[in-house]
């Protein structure tokens, strides 16, 4: 599946040769990010709100708690938990499917990427990176001009920067 800024969510069933829109129930087709949580629910973060699909992307349902939010990034956590990052720098987390959304942290720049592994969460806000334990106690790492991040394992994080370097660092 692919999120697009004009055509909603596209889906390919032939290894990417052809793509078709799957947007039943999707009220906003400017989709920034997609994520499948540990329970198999697919989430779409859009310019206006969060949508969920319990039917493998066939149909989307609006999430009323987050209707006025422009969502930039999503990451699945353990036990059906989910984190989302907004264009105005807010990190909101829901620790399990029955819990409500909590504003966990607020940065001053758009939250472009969230990576979660176990309890660890790494966040790319603007071009800086912060790493947290659970959904709190975030620590800013001393890297600038960061463009992408990915966990290697629970203690090692890969950081890509716009000068072409990839830093593998231990944040254990």
């Amino acid at each position: 599946m692919a999120a697009t800024l004009e055509d909603g969510v596209l889906r390919s069933e032939d290894g990417g040769k052809s793509w078709r829109g799957w947007n039943f129930g999707l009220l906003n087709w400017r989709v920034n990010t997609l994520c499948r949580d540990s329970r198999g629910v697919i989430w779409a973060g859009a310019e206006s709100g969060l949508f969920r699909s319990d039917t493998d992307g066939r149909r989307w349902q609006d999430q009323p708690a987050l209707v006025d939010t422009a969502i930039n990034s999503l990451a699945a956590m353990a036990e059906g938990g989910l984190c989302l990052g907004t264009i105005d720098g807010a990190l909101r987390c829901r620790l399990n499917p029955d819990a409500g959304w909590i504003l966990t942290q607020q940065w001053g720049s758009p939250l472009n990427t969230i990576c979660a592994i176990g309890e660890r969460i790494a966040v790319l806000h603007g071009q800086a990176v912060s790493v947290g334990n659970g959904a709190s106690r975030f620590e800013l790492l001393p890297y600038t001009d960061v463009t992408c991040i990915a966990w290697l394992d629970k203690t090692r994080l890969l950081i890509g920067t716009d000068d072409g370097l990839v830093h593998g660092i231990d944040v254990g």
Binding site: D7, G21, G49
Partner: peptide
């Protein structure tokens, strides 16, 4: 029509 550029908030309220 696909991908209408109307206001999503207004659409939600209308629905």
């Amino acid at each position: 029509i696909r991908g209408g550029r109307g206001d999503t908030e207004r659409l939600r309220g209308h629905l």
